[in-house]
Amino acid sequence: MKHAFRKIRLVAHLAYGMWVVATRFSRVTAQQRSELNRAWSLRFLQLAGMRLVVHNDGARLDEGALVVSNHVSWIDIYVINAWRPTRFVSKAEVRKWPVIGWFAEQLDTVFLQREKRSDAKRIVHELADHLIAGDVICVFPEGTTTDGRELLPFHANLFQAAVSAARPVQPLCLYYEDARGNQSTAPSYIGEMSLGESLDTLLRGTPLTAHVVVCDPLAPGAERRVLAAQAQAAVEGALDRLRPVGARARQQAVLGQTEQEADAAHAGDTPAANGPLAQ
Rank of each mutant, 00 (worst) to 15 (best):
I8Q: 08
R9L: 12
V11K: 05
A12Q: 15
H13L: 04
A15H: 13
W19K: 09
A22C: 01
R24S: 04
S26A: 13
V28S: 05
T29E: 09
A30H: 05
R43V: 01
F44Y: 06
F44E: 03
L47H: 04
V54A: 08
H55S: 03
A59N: 08
G64T: 12
G64R: 07
H71Y: 05
I75G: 00
I75Q: 00
I77W: 04
I77K: 01
T86Q: 15
R87N: 10
F88W: 09
F88H: 13
A92I: 15
W97M: 14
P98I: 15
I100G: 07
G101Y: 07
W102T: 10
A104G: 09
L107C: 03
T109A: 05
V110I: 07
L112P: 00
R114G: 07
R117L: 05
D119V: 10
E126Y: 02
H130W: 02
G134W: 07
I137L: 06
V139Q: 08
P141T: 11
E142M: 09
T144M: 08
G148I: 00
L152F: 08
L152Y: 08
L152M: 11
P153E: 15
F159V: 15
A162S: 15
V163I: 05
A166H: 14
V169G: 06
C173F: 04
Y176R: 05
S184W: 02
T185D: 02
S188N: 09
Y189N: 02
I190M: 07
S194P: 05
S194N: 07
L195A: 13
G196T: 12
G196W: 06
S198E: 12
L199R: 00
T201I: 00
L202K: 02
L203C: 01
L208E: 03
V212H: 01
V213I: 10
D216L: 06
D216G: 07
P220G: 13
A222V: 10
E223Q: 11
R225S: 12
L227F: 04
Q230I: 11
R243Q: 11
P244N: 15
A249L: 06
L255V: 08
L255F: 01
D263V: 06
A265P: 01
H266K: 04
H266N: 13
A267H: 13
A272K: 07
A273T: 11
A278L: 03
A278Q: 12
